[in-house]
Design a protein around this nucleic acid. Sequence first.
DNA 1: CATAGTGTGTACTATGTAGTACATACTCTA
DNA 2: TAGAGTATGTACTACATAGTACACACTATG
Lengths: 118, 118
Amino acid sequence: MAKAFGSYVRERRERRRETDPRFSVRQLAQRIGVEPSYLSKVERDDVAPPSEATILRLAAELDEDPDVLLALAGKVSSDLQEAIRKRPELFAALIRELKGMPDQAVLRLVREVRDGNW
Amino acid sequence: MAKAFGSYVRERRERRRETDPRFSVRQLAQRIGVEPSYLSKVERDDVAPPSEATILRLAAELDEDPDVLLALAGKVSSDLQEAIRKRPELFAALIRELKGMPDQAVLRLVREVRDGNW
DNA sequence: CATAGTGTGTACTATGTAGTACATACTCTA
DNA sequence: TAGAGTATGTACTACATAGTACACACTATG
């Protein structure tokens, strides 16, 4: 693993908790719909990261980028997967082409596409 | 599901079998390292598609595009997933930007990146 | 008519995924 | 010093994944 999912979540949650008591394990667990003991184990990397659905609720509560949190969990958002599955040759070629390139290059591409001036 | 994985494989295998007796269920199953009864069930969509590793061996034997076969199985190649996980914000933005665009546009982009003239 | 090759039905299994349920132990504070 | 709030340890579970093992029935052929 690159970085531990659990410890990252714990750090984020504790940061929020400094100013907001609603960010205890118990209360956060309840808001995202899991048992406190489970969230605790997740945060200590005692168990594998939760399902995509649970991670998304977690990201929303912690105000984190869902794609980043999913990535830390070793997952890729299902809507991205679906986009790739619909046009596998095209997206496979593009991603393999880009995976060796620097962030700058990819970012530039994103912007070009977004601005439509190409 | 968009299209059935199994029936596609069966069609491809039977096509090959017309000219090459090595493409019976039994022999192909043996070459890709699974039980014939399992391959049979897979081809009749009686069970879920095989694992990524098995699909890749199948694609190689049938001379099919692995990404297409994986897509039919509802999967995305793990090397693509890994590329996305390494830079989630960037790739998520790019893919979401492109998913509404026509094939032509994506293809043009692939070529531009490949040719490096940008 | 036996036997080699074809596909398939049934039963079973090992491992992983994504959690729940409950009990325990600590700490602050009213 | 009781009670509320904190996190955590242990045990268990339902369902999915990815198959194996073996017996069976059909067909062509030498």
